[in-house]
């Protein structure tokens, strides 16, 4: 097989399709998805073995906390999407305001989580309260860790944005952060019904 033959095997790039952000962030997001697919498999296997524990467990959790985190995640995702939209239009100031709003709302997530854990402990719910709560704690803590990385990413991108590091022509870093945060949002949108809606 010659190099010329190989050239024919590689399909030409579609100019209408693009990589949101950069390749590196999509390697990370794909790894994140694979990790959570494995964790979801553990959830479904545990659920199929102990349906009663999952039925009863969901009724003991604080649904207000779960709903608050969901609304915080989708709203911060919305603000960051608006920030990307603004920088594309060349509205630097508007992009900063949307990103600051996204950061402030995103910070509500760890705060809500701490309050939820305190509420859980006050109601006798800890990691040893049964299979449902063990799965609940490891999945939600794992998500919180990923969200914390996202919040640190927002801080870094905000600092660059404040010093005019992005423009309408070059905003790959901001879009990469947005892609990561949206992916983390999608993961939470799966976790939320697992523990707070299904009984």
């Amino acid at each position: 097989m010659t190099a010329t033959t190989l050239d024919h095997l590689v399909p030409p790039e579609d100019p209408t399709r693009r990589i949101p952000g950069n390749k590196g962030i999509w390697v990370g997001i794909t790894c994140e998805f694979v990790e959570f697919v494995v964790l979801f498999a553990v959830y479904f296997i545990a659920r199929s073995h102990f349906p009663d524990a999952f039925h009863d467990g969901a009724q003991r959790l604080n649904i207000v906390a779960g709903t608050s985190i969901t609304l915080l995640m989708v709203t911060s995702s919305y603000c960051i999407a608006c920030s990307v939209n603004a920088i594309r239009l060349g509205q630097q100031r508007s992009a900063v305001i949307w990103l600051v709003a996204g950061l402030v709302i995103a910070l509500g997530y760890p705060v809500s989580k701490v309050m939820e854990i305190n509420w859980n402990l006050a109601h006798g719910i800890n990691g040893e309260s049964g299979i449902f709560f063990t799965v609940y704690y490891y999945l939600t803590f794992n998500h919180l860790v990923h969200a914390t990385w996202g919040i640190l990413g927002i801080l870094w991108v905000l600092a660059r944005l404040l010093f005019h590091g992005y423009s309408a022509e070059d905003y790959a870093g901001l879009e990469a952060l947005a892609s990561y945060w949206h992916a983390t949002d999608i993961i939470w949108l799966v976790i939320f019904p697992f523990f707070y809606v299904l009984a």
Binding site: P20, S77, Y78, H182, D185, I186
Partner: peptide
């Protein structure tokens, strides 16, 4: 989220 925020329809 994939369609409206990430714009998956125009992504690679």
């Amino acid at each position: 989220v994939a369609r409206c925020f990430i714009e998956a329809q125009v992504a690679h």
